[in-house]
Each structure stands twice: as C-alpha cells, then as structure tokens.
Write a protein that binds this DNA or RNA. Structure first.
Length: 572
RNA sequence: CGGGGUGUGGCGCAGUGGCAGCGCGCAUGGUUUGGGACCAUGAGGCCGGCGGUUCAAAUCCGCCCACCCCGACCA
C-alpha cells in the first residue's frame, strides 16, 4: 500500500491571497506568497508552508538523486562553526560582515556557516592520508546563513537559505577536472529535470576564492545577473568576468601634447562632443577608495570600469568609489583629472589605454584638457590589465562576432578551488612517490529555494503558477462542485480514496466554495492536472480532466478514472 | 552602507488636527453553486515604536525600528 499522499484543502494551514502583498515586486515572490507556499519571517527569511515545502522537497530530491548518481556521498555538516576555523584560512575577512557571528556563554565566537569548505578540509585533514583515499565527492543539503547586503525577491536571495554544497577532493589537476565535469553533467540533468533551461557561463569566483569558476544561469529578462554571450560560438560569461574585444589599434602618427580650454566640461560625453571626437578617443579617470587608500584608474572613454576585475587585480578586501573629499584630498581635480604627471597615487590602467592614439585626457586643472595624449609616451601606470566591463556589440574574445547581453538568474555555481584552502587547513596526503601534497578541492553549490523560485519565474501565467509535473506539490487537483442533493460528494470521496490507493498525489478541494473560487485557486496553486466532478458531467458518467497549461478539458468516464489519471500522469 | 518608498483589522486601501473607515476575507443564519454569488447580523485595530507640540494627534515635529525597491555582494 502506497503511503497516503493526499491533502484536504479545507484543512490546509495556509490560505490563498487574492491580491499580492503590495510591497512585493518579483513574480515568484508574489506567486509563492499568494499561493500560501511561503510565509515571511524577517527580511530574507521565510517559512515553507506545506505546499511550498512539498515542492521544495521535490527539487531537493532531484538534486540529491543526481548527486548520488554522480558518486556523491551525502553527509551533514554543522551550521555552527568556530570562528577560529575561518581564521585558519583567512576567509573570515573575505566574507566580512556577510557572516553571522554569535557568542556562546563562554564568550567564544561562533559563526553561522555561510559555506563549508573549511569544515570539509578539516575532514580531509583527518581522513585523507593517501592518494588511494582519493577522489572523494561529499555533499550536504543544509541551510546556509549569509547576512546579505540586501536580501531580495523572496526566495531568490535570502539570508537563510538551503543549499546543496558538494566538495570534491582530488589528488591532481586531472582528477579535479574529472570531478568538475561530473558535476557539470549532473547539474545539467538537474536543470533538465526541473524544466529550467540553464546555460553555463564563466564567472568570477568572488569570496569563495579559487582559480576557475562557472555559473549556471537561467536566462530570463527579470534576472538579476547580467550575462554576456556570443550568438555564434559557445562563449558566455557573467558580466563580472566577461571580456570583449576593445578594438581600434593605434594607426595615427603621434602628435604633440596640446592643452585646450574646456570650460565647464565635466563628462566624457560632453568632452568628446566639445572636441569633436568619439568617446573612444578620450581617456576617462575614475577614483576608488581601496582598503582606505585612493587609487587612480584610467580607461578609454567609451568603456566602463568593472569593479570586480579591478578588485581581483588589486587583491584587496574593500573597494568603493572614492568620495569627493578623498579625491580632492589626493590633489585630483574631478572632471579634469589626468594621469599626466601624476605622482604619489597608485595608478591602474585598463589595457584599452594602449589601443588608440592621440587621446583627449584631463589636464588636472579645472576647465582644461589635453589633446594627443599617448600611452606610454606621456604617462605610465603602476599596473595595466583588463579592468573593463564587456558590453553588447563588442567582439567576442573567441570568434569576434558581436557579443550580446542578457539577464539571468544564477541557479548554480561551481568552483575549482585548488589547494589554497587545503594548504592552510593542512589537508595533505602522500602521493605514489611518498611525497606529501595538499588535497585539491572543488566546490559546487545549488540554492534549492532559489531554484524553486526560478522555476516559478519561468513557469507561470496570469492566473498563477504552472508547476512542471516533476516539481508540483501535488500531481492532481480533485475539484468537486457540490450541487444540491447530488451524488458529487460521495463519488468524489470514493475517487479520492481510489486515487490515493493507486499512488497519485492529490490535493482534494473539499471546500464548499463556489466554482469560481475553486478554479482560481487551482490555477494559482498550479497543480498540473485538474479533475472536476460535477452534476453536469456525472449525469453521463463522466468527469472533466484538464491540464493546467491547456484550455480545454477532456471527458473521461468516472468508472476506473483513478487508473486513467495515473496513466495520464505517468505517461506525460 | 548610499539612494528611493511604505508602515492604519488576515490582504488591498481611504482617512491634513476634533467619534478610526471602506472593499475583500472571517463568524452566524438564510438563499445560492461551472470562472473570485447574494441578503441580513456580527467579530476583529496600542493607526510600527518612543518622545515632543497641542485643549485635542493616525494626521504636525524629532528620534528610532521594520519591511520593500535600485546599487555594491551572493546559491
């Protein structure tokens, strides 16, 4: 006998909301709230109510099955971790205030785990002795805590959220590459089973650290991530990481410097227009406060600084735009700042400053600019590299076709960590030659709730959620329309038991409400298959069966309906 | 943290100094039952909090808090 997987709607703790709470914006946030699937606790913190929890568990189980299939071993690591563990790798400073930190009764500092690389490295330190112990894939599905700067979009970014995090331990780079590929394949299957199209993009590794990293992104116009992708080859990257061809090599003969008056010109656009050149013939200066010091950056005028790239190049913890006071305090003139004759301030240049000749730059004197500035003839920078944001229209770094920009939701992120954590934690093993070597790690995360929200973002219509069958909290919505003195009640009760018996997950709308109320709730809740039992069709021995995403119902005989419905569901 | 917004019954909202209201929902009774029915009668609010101004504050002033949205961060 299959365990009962039915629920009488009249007994459900949550109620549907006719209107979405006014202060919500994101569609998945609104629908999950309206459907009574989640309930807000604090900013970025939610309860999962019974229907939402069932959908959550379906996603979770798909992830679990695919991790197991890939050879992952499920475990559960502590959410509470001693701060000392984080001090061993120094990542407490990289995470900074994002980590929730508490004190126990003995004033010992603990953090609420934002991720678990340290814990796993500790495990490796204890258990991994020999190359024979490798490779290992170990994972957990557990709530993470991150005091995000700004939680948003309901389940899309919370401060407490469930994440599947798998860690690979390998003996060498080839092993890591293999583990990495296993995970890519597993992730692809997960998204497929969730009916969530996702593309893999190159990404920055951020606070997690490491050398190589990819994100899985579900492309949707409402997404929070900007993606740069090439329409003609497979290149795709997160904006933080994306590269675009900057074009325009210097061909002109270098002309002598020429200072010109540029009264009240403050922006690059105004300057270019005033001088009569494209913005790509100008130099733009931007100032940052980097760990408390002012840093001068210079980039070609048509490009924008990418702060993530800059931060990576500088290897700093805190980076923000410098304030006016800081700029003035460093002796710079905002609006006419110049790399020319600059001294005493660290300078960073985008490599685009070498592309193009005879550029217009500031004179570091209010109201003046200088023409025919050329790098490196007229100025130098301390560091030069790619610190520009790629943009649509630039050439693809692989095939030169014009790049396109799009938006997406990050639904997974994988990292080749290498050895920087294992080295610091002291997780080492003996190789075949008997030499001690640090374990090579990878880490692979999927936010379960975010995945659920992303599914709603992609699967809804104006009436509500349209869950894929694999995710829906229940497979069928049993909807009797109680007329007076009819058989509908009895027949439906019987059918309900029958459906449970054959193993269908059924939500039984046993409420005495009017048809409109019930139909609208059925649509809002997004249950894939709806069964209407009413006097109308019952008279001819039929019931109406309708897919959520289809307009027209089909009539099926009430006799043996449970089996028929099962066939429909299993066959789809 | 910077910028913007909102806090009045479960949800959506009105209420510019003088009795705290409306719609939906909820309860009871009745009539209804194929896309959010109708009538009647009810219940339900420390107007986010603290302080101030005033004879009188949801309303004016100050401080604080919470939540939402934009940015930096992230699964």
């Amino acid at each position: 006998m299959t365990p009962t997987a039915g629920l009488r709607l009249s007994q459900l703790i949550s109620k549907t909301l006719r209107q979405a709470p006014a202060d919500t914006e994101t569609i998945s946030h609104q629908l999950l709230l309206r459907a009574g699937m989640i309930f807000p606790g604090a900013a970025g913190v939610y309860s999962y109510l019974p229907l939402g929890w069932r959908a959550f568990k379906k996603v979770e189980n798909i992830i679990r099955e695919e991790m197991d299939r890939a050879g992952g071993q499920e475990a559960l690591f502590p959410g509470l971790q001693p701060l000392e563990l984080w001090q061993e790798t120094g990542r407490n400073t990289a995470f900074g205030p994002t980590m929730f930190s508490i004190e126990d009764r003995k004033d010992r500092r603990l953090v609420l785990g934002p991720t678990h690389e340290e814990v796993v490295a500790q495990l490796a330190r204890s258990y991994v002795r020999s190359y024979r112990d490798l490779p290992v894939l170990v994972y957990q599905i557990q709530n993470k805590f991150r005091d995000e700067l700004r939680p948003r979009g309901g389940l899309l970014r919370g401060r407490e959220f469930s994440m599947k995090d798998l860690y690979s331990l390998d003996a060498d780079e080839a092993g890591l590459d293999h583990s990495y590929q296993l995970m890519i394949d597993a992730y692809r299957r997960i998204y497929e089973r969730c009916h969530l199209p996702a593309v893999i993009v190159e990404a920055d590794s951020g606070a997690i650290g490491g050398k190589e990293s990819h994100e899985f992104t579900s492309l949707t116009p409402t997404g929070e991530d900007e993606i740069i992708h090439c329409p003609s080859c497979t290149y795709a990257a997160n904006l933080e990481k994306a590269q675009g061809q900057k074009g325009e090599a210097p061909t002109d003969a270098l002309l002598p410097l020429d200072e010109i008056a540029t009264p009240s010109i403050k922006t690059i656009e105004a300057l270019a227009q005033f001088v009569g050149v494209p913005t790509s013939r100008t130099l733009k200066a931007v100032f940052y406060s980097v760990d408390g010091k002012v840093v001068f950056t210079v980039i070609r005028g048509d490009l924008d600084i990418n702060e993530v790239k800059l931060k990576n190049l500088l290897k700093c913890n805190e980076l923000r735009m410098a304030t006016e006071e800081e700029v003035a305090g460093a002796g710079l003139v905002a609006g006419s700042a110049s790399p020319l004759g600059l001294k005493g301030i660290p300078t960073m240049g985008d490599d685009s400053i070498a592309l193009g000749a005879n550029l217009v730059a500031g004179a570091n004197r209010d109201g003046y600019h200088v023409k025919n500035v050329n790098y490196p003839r007229d100025f130098q920078v301390d560091t030069i590299g790619d610190i520009a944001s790629a943009a649509a229209g630039q050439g693809c770094p692989r095939c030169s076709a014009p790049l396109q920009a799009g938006r997406g939701i990050e639904v997974g992120h994988i990292f080749k960590l290498g050895t920087f954590i294992s080295q610091k934690i002291g997780a080492a093993f003996l190789d075949q030659e008997g030499a001690s070597r640090p374990v090579i790690m990878g880490s692979y995360g999927i936010g379960v709730g975010r995945l659920l929200a992303a599914i709603v973002e992609l699967h809804h219509d104006d009436k509500g959620i349209t869950w894929p069958l694999s995710i829906a909290p229940y497979q069928a919505y049993l909807c009797p329309l109680y007329g007076d003195g009819s058989q509908v009640g009895e027949v439906t009760e019987e059918l309900y038991q029958e459906m449970l018996k054959v193993g269908i997950e059924v939500l039984f709308d046993d409420r005495e409400d009017s048809p409109g109320v019930k139909f609208n709730d059925a649509d809002l809740l997004g249950i894939p298959l709806r069964l209407v039992i009413s006097q109308r069709s019952l008279g001819k021995g039929n019931a109406e069966v309708k897919w959520r995403t289809e307009k027209q119902p089909q009539l099926l005989p009430i006799e043996g309906l449970a089996q028929q419905v099962k066939a429909l569901l299993w066959g789809s």
